[in-house]
Each structure stands twice: as structure tokens, then as C-alpha cells.
Nucleic acid binder design. Structure first.
Length: 226
DNA sequence: GCATTAACCACAG
DNA sequence: CTGTGGTTAATGC
């Protein structure tokens, strides 16, 4: 929408920080910033992967269809690239990205992005670094999630949101019960019961969507023991 | 057997 | 969309 000013952008990715000023001019000519509202789909599984999506501000869920329902793979908080693997790895998106809050996305032409990788080694290295770190944390998460029981899984993502996303013990839950269940592979009923159990035990408190972690040590314990 | 865990269904607010 | 109760199946003492 708006004409992006990549050169002046204060929210450049670590990789984009390493672009020369002429490369930034090229970027500016080949990208567009689009603003998404809560709930808007940024790109959809099964559709053509046409552009690189850079999440400049906001929060996004990355999710894909499973045999029985939707599965949330991870949350992505700004600033970060969204879906590099699905954009480079295939012509068709293997998963979807949906805004959880109002978000600003810069879509970058695939050719331009590819050109930067070919010609600017530092840029390419930053991208690889990002991909590698993501793979490490994802593998860690899969190992944890597949072996913990329900309370452990819920405790883990609550702690994750608190530590990694909001950096606070009190935050607005970005997901409803159904989405939480998509995230930790359970039913919405179990999420509902478990949250009220946690609240009953004084581990958390919930006001509408605002969640406060009261006993972080307890939550850690539950998360660890699974 | 008996307890625990968690899914599925139905229904209410 | 959320919370709850009943039921059922699987798993583990």
C-alpha cells in the first residue's frame, strides 16, 4: 500500500541491515507494505507462493491443515521473515500465516530477494542463521510437545508466550481456546478445563483474555514433569 | 479391578 | 465462543 522507505526503515531485519544503499534502493522498488487486521490471512496453504513476506510489526500464527483439523506450528513475532521455507521450498505454500493482531507485512519480490542472496554473502549468511535457529527451536518444541502430557504442554506454551513473546507475566492471550487446542494438539474442552484448573490452583489468573502468571515456578514444574 | 488421562458429545449461557 | 457434565476408551498400577 504505502510506498515503503526501506532506507529509512527502523525495523529492518538483521539481514537487511547488511544491504548496501543501492541494494536498499532496489528493495524499495520491489516491495510493498500491506497492513493486516487481526484474523486476516497473510498467505494461505495450497496457494501460489509468490513473494517473501517480512513481518515488520505484529504477531502471526503459522498453521497447516492436518488429517483432522488445523495445527498451529508456531507463533511468529515481529520482526521476522514469514515462511521462507515454503516460499523457496515449493511453488505452493505448505502452510498458512494468519495475523493474530494488526500487523504490518512487507512483501518482497522473490527475484529481488534471491538476487540479494546470490550477490551479498553477508545477507545470505544472516538468512541461513535465521533458518538454522528456527529449525533448532522447532525440533526442540516437537520433542517436548510429543512426549509431554496435556498440562505440561499447556504450561510450556504459556511460559513460552510469557518469556519469548510478551516478556511479561501478564499478557493478553492472542489465541482463543480452540486455537490453543490447535497449538498443543488437544480438544478445546480440555484447554478450557485445564485453564480453569490452573486458575483454581492459583497458578494463573484470567480476566477475559488477560492472563497473569502467578506461580511461575509451579508452571515450570508442570511443564518439566510433563 | 481401579485410577488416571483425555477425547467426544450435548447442552447452556 | 466458553464452560461443564456425562460417557467412553486406553493405559497403567
Amino acid at each position: 500500500m504505502a510506498n515503503p522507505e526501506c532506507r529509512l526503515c527502523g525495523l529492518k531485519s538483521p539481514a537487511a541491515e547488511l544491504l548496501s544503499s543501492s541494494e536498499l534502493e532496489t528493495l524499495e522498488l520491489n516491495c510493498a507494505q500491506i497492513n493486516f487486521k487481526k484474523g486476516d490471512v497473510i498467505f494461505r496453504e495450497g496457494t501460489l507462493a509468490t513473494n517473501i513476506a517480512y513481518l515488520k510489526s505484529g504477531l502471526v500464527k503459522v498453521h497447516m491443515k492436518g488429517p483432522t483439523g488445523d495445527k498451529i506450528l508456531r507463533l511468529m513475532k515481529a520482526p521476522t521473515y514469514l515462511g521462507l521455507p515454503t516460499t523457496f521450498g515449493d511453488k505452493v505454500n505448505h502452510y498458512s500465516a494468519t495475523a493474530l493482531i494488526d500487523s504490518h507485512i512487507c512483501f518482497i519480490s522473490l527475484d529481488t530477494f534471491r538476487d540479494f542472496i546470490f550477490k551479498n554473502g553477508s545477507f545470505a549468511y544472516e538468512i541461513i542463521l535465521d533458518l538454522c535457529r528456527n529449525e533448532l527451536t522447532d525440533y526442540q518444541k516437537y520433542a517436548n510437545m510429543s512426549q509431554k502430557q496435556l498440562p505440561g504442554r499447556l504450561a510450556e506454551i504459556l511460559l513460552c508466550m510469557s518469556h519469548e513473546v510478551y516478556k511479561s507475566n501478564r499478557f493478553e492471550l492472542p489465541l482463543n481456546n480452540n486455537e490453543l487446542s490447535d497449538f498443543i494438539s488437544t480438544s478445546r474442552e480440555s484447554v478450557s478445563r485445564l485453564l480453569s484448573d490452573f486458575a483454581k490452583e492459583g497458578i494463573i489468573s484470567i480476566n477475559k483474555k488477560e492472563l497473569t502468571i502467578l506461580k511461575e515456578d509451579m508452571l515450570e514444574k508442570i511443564s518439566l514433569k510433563g
